[in-house]
Design a protein around this nucleic acid. Structure first.
Length: 808
RNA sequence: GCGAGUAUGGCGAAAUCGGCAGACGCAAAAGACUUAAAAUCUUUCGGGAGAGAUCCCAUAUCGGUUCAAAUCCGAUUACUCGCACCA
């Protein structure tokens, strides 16, 4: 079969018949199958794209044959740093390189032959899309979910922009690996923390990988504790957060983060110089240095004292950068006896260590950080763990000094970027009116083409006078636009909604359409998005629901992560490893179907693994074998007899394959699905070799086989279907359903064990009782010999599998 | 450091609820066809012992539960991923 020609032929026919387009008028049940859209950083599709889209498309086609009205759109996440960095390096404008890359990738995606509904295509960098991204910003702003504040933020000196918390890993920029520094900047944030609790509790109902749910759960980081106020001798109140209020009688000092507003205020004159020096020094430290847990803790005494609200003791106040300003209250009560960090700090600065918790399961070794019995704590003595914390928290609350408090590690999402290639933030800064949102009727705020985007630490748009200069929509006076652009993750937080109504010029989407089509039934993409895109998209969905636009709570009902295809050497594919395998040459030689099928067969889909050149030849051979046997089956004239043991065996193989392939396709267990197809192919060959055949059955089995294979090798299957006289598209055919009667065998082979060791095997007719099966086993000469007259104490029968005789 | 996951032939892997370990392939070997090669077809293919029927060992390591463990429990080792001073 000339696969190149066959692919072109069927792609053209599908296209002409608009066969891949979602049929909105259909009354079949909808199935929204979505793969994460492409980022057009390089021109060509790499193995990762094929591995994501190929098998996922087979799943979508499988669902279509099962009778669902499948919607599978595709688009481009087109804004972002790589295009801009490429522009800085080469001088090619990001818009030009992006459009060129998209054109190439789109061509390749079409050549893949996936069932993408191109009529719904989205490109996030186009005005008719980012207009609505800006609209989203305005709605969040109206709802109080977008706000501007000055805060210490993560700054990547290489990318010349701020980064979200989620984009910093181990203190370095997730994108370029540069060490991130802290800067105080006024930036736009989305209040994702307002949804912390629901983002957490909503995970329970999702059909997502457990690991991904756990990652989000840890990222949100719910912690239940207690706020406690320590009155300062200066009259100020220091509020601390602790999860261990049962240790309050062991507090020997209180620590503020160096950025804490009270830090300088409470500092005594004699300590001022030293404290100022310390604050300056810690401000300089970069995130890597500061976050290193191995690093020796540093701190400084402020000269101030405060009072423990329960014990009345006088307590010194320190500054130390092991306390984070951005979490809790930015201040902690230090209990060196029961916290490892406080213990290290107290040891270094010779502060007292007072034990107030006793191990109830053995000797107490300090620092003792587990739950224990309160001691040296006045009338709280003897209380344990959770109960102890409850009692203490209640007392604190009664004194009006705080009380129970829930905190989350999740921070608000910083969305400003000091970069060019993104959606401009739709805000105008007026000297009289302050930050004013752009009126919706003025959207989009267009991204100008002619801009100097070489980085110098300022937003490139700030240097574009015609963009910046504008009038205030409130007072009409001269004003300036916000020079920053939105994080590209904002664009991808709602694209799955836009697919439902991509050409709408009046609103981002029609509510009825979106609510009919969404949520996404199955979402397929990489695991690296666990705490970024997948979290942000959930936030957007919930926020839009609360604004009345959506009537569902979660965007993605089922989530599947494909694994990673590594280089042949077992390393991640990269230029530096020199181990990149390009799909193009394989597709050229073997065709798209063979390549996809190999990706499905050679790896466990969610695991991935190293690339291996040999397997694809085997797949190509398999397809040849398929072609031969199917054409052969259709050469014989119809003859519906005989129906003996051989026919029964073929019918069993056929129905067994239907049952297993259906189950495996549903479970994204593509490698085993293909294995079952190969088994059926082998069974067909075996049957073909017989001198006398039931041709009608043979043909029916061959046809079922082709239907089962169709989603995995779509062009190939269409071509064969046509050759055997099929009418229309094979994907209009109904997916085969197994006949359970044909799966009942007359007899099954049982393994017969004596004392759990296999002695022999025996065929046993179906439908016998356990007792009858036991009698059959006992009647075997090998068994009688093995038992040697010993009585059988117990007999275990596993239906269809084995008999185990336990003899004394 | 904390959390999670993985570990099965020469290789990719498979094994519903604990029930015949290694399905399906790759590679390899032998044979058939061929002047020859390729392609195709047939057979063998975890390790050890044995002429053989068979027997013993084997799912990272050690131990446990069970009639029965790749699967459950405990400990150990190695690797992968996520978080990382979150009080």
């Amino acid at each position: 079969m000339d696969m190149k020609e066959v692919e072109r032929k069927w792609q053209a026919r599908w296209e002409k018949a608009k066969f891949n387009n979602f049929d909105e008028k259909s009354d079949r049940e909808k199935k929204y199958v979505l793969e994460m859209f492409s980022y057009p950083s390089g021109a060509k599709l790499h193995i990762g794209h094929w591995y994501n889209y190929g098998p996922a498309d087979s799943y979508a086609r499988f669902k279509r044959m099962q009778g669902y009205n499948v919607f599978q759109p595709m688009g481009f996440d087109a804004f972002g740093l790589p295009a801009e960095n490429y522009a800085i390096k080469t001088g090619v404008h990001p818009k030009d390189s992006t459009e060129k890359n998209i054109a190439t990738m789109e061509k390749q995606l079409r050549a893949m032959g996936a069932m993408f509904d191109w009529s719904a295509e989205i490109k996030t960098c186009e005005e008719d899309y980012y207009k609505w991204t800006q609209w989203m910003f305005l709605q969040l702003y109206k709802k109080g979910l977008a706000y501007r504040k000055e805060a210490p933020v993560n700054w990547c000196p290489s990318c010349n922009t701020v980064l979200a918390n989620e984009q910093v890993t181990e203190g370095v920029c997730e994108r370029c690996g540069t060490v991130v520094v802290r800067k105080n900047l006024t930036q736009w944030f989305f209040k994702i923390t307002a949804y912390a609790e629901e983002l957490l509790s909503g995970l329970d109902g999702l059909d997502w990988p457990e690991k991904t749910k756990l990652m989000q759960k840890n990222w949100i980081g719910k912690s239940t504790g207690c706020d406690i106020e320590f009155d300062c001798e200066t009259g100020d109140k220091i509020r601390v957060y602790t999860t261990r209020c049962d240790t309050i009688f062991g507090v020997t000092y209180v620590v503020l983060a160096p950025e804490h507003p009270l830090a300088l205020k409470i500092t005594t004159e004699d300590r001022r110089a030293e404290v100022e020096a310390y604050i300056a020094e810690t401000a300089k430290a970069n995130e890597i240095e500061r976050l290193s847990t191995a690093r020796e803790k540093t701190g400084v005494f402020t000269g101030a004292y405060c009072v423990n609200p329960l014990s009345g003791k006088r307590i010194p106040v320190y500054l130390a950068d092991y306390v984070l300003y951005s979490y809790g209250t930015g201040a902690v009560m230090a209990v060196p006896a029961h916290d490892e960090r406080d213990f290290a700090f107290a040891t270094k600065y010779h502060l007292p260590i007072v034990q107030v918790i006793e191990n109830r399961n053995g000797p107490t070794e300090l620092p003792f950080v587990e739950d224990g019995i309160m001691i040296g704590s006045l009338n709280f003595d003897g209380l344990y763990g959770e109960e102890a914390r409850d009692e203490v928290a209640n007392r604190i609350a009664k004194l009006g000094k705080g009380g129970k408090k829930v905190n989350y590690r999740l921070r608000d999402w910083l969305v400003s970027r000091q970069r060019y290639w993104g959606a401009p933030i739709p805000v105008i800064h007026c000297p009289n009116c302050g930050a004013v949102p752009v009126p919706e009727k003025d959207l989009p705020v267009k991204l100008p083409y002619k801009v100097e985007f070489r980085p110098d630490g300022k937003s490139p748009l700030a240097k574009c006078a015609e963009f910046m200069h504008t009038t205030c929509p409130v007072c009409g006076g001269e004003a300036e636009r916000d020079p920053d652009t939105l994080d590209t993750f904002v664009c991808s937080s709602w694209y799955y909604l836009r697919y439902a109504d991509p050409q709408n010029t009046k609103e981002p989407f029609d509510r009825a359409r979106v609510n009919a089509l969404l949520p996404v039934d199955t979402y397929i993409g990489g695991a690296e998005h666990a705490c970024m895109h997948l979290l942000y998209a959930r936030f957007f969905t919930k926020a839009l629901r609360d604004m009345g636009y959506l009537n569902f709570d979660e965007p993605f009902k089922r989530l599947v992560h494909q694994g990673v295809i590594m280089g042949p050497d077992g390393n991640r594919m990269s230029k530096s490893h020199g181990n990149i395998v390009s799909p193009d040459e394989y597709v050229e030689e073997y065709g798209s179907d063979a390549f996809r099928l190999y990706l499905m067969f050679g790896f466990s889909y969610t695991e991935g693994g190293p690339w291996n050149d040999d397997g694809i030849k085997a797949i190509s051979r398999f397809l040849d074998r398929v072609e031969k046997i199917i054409l052969k089956a259709y050469e014989y004239p119809d003859k519906n007899a005989p129906y003996g043991a051989e026919e029964k065996a073929l019918d069993y193989a056929r129905n067994y394959a239907i049952q297993k392939v259906t189950r495996d396709m549903d479970a994204f267990s593509f490698n085993t699905a293909v294995a079952r197809l190969m088994e059926l192919c082998n069974a067909l060959y075996k049957y073909e070799a017989l001198p006398v055949k039931n041709n009608t059955l043979f043909k029916a089995a061959a046809k079922d086989f082709l239907l089962l294979l169709a989603p995995c090798a779509p062009h190939f299957a269409e071509e064969l279907f046509e050759k055997i006289g099929g009418k229309g598209f094979i994907f209009e055919q109904e997916y085969p359903k197994e006949n359970p009667e044909k799966l009942v065998l007359d007899e099954t082979e049982y393994a017969v064990q004596v004392n759990s060791r296999i002695v022999c095997r025996v065929m046993i007719p179906s439908g016998l009782s356990d007792g009858e099966i036991e009698q059959r086993a006992l009647a075997l000469p090998e068994i009688a010999e093995k038992l040697g007259g010993k009585p059988v104490k117990k007999c275990i029968v596993v239906p269809g599998r084995l008999v185990n005789l336990i003899a004394g």
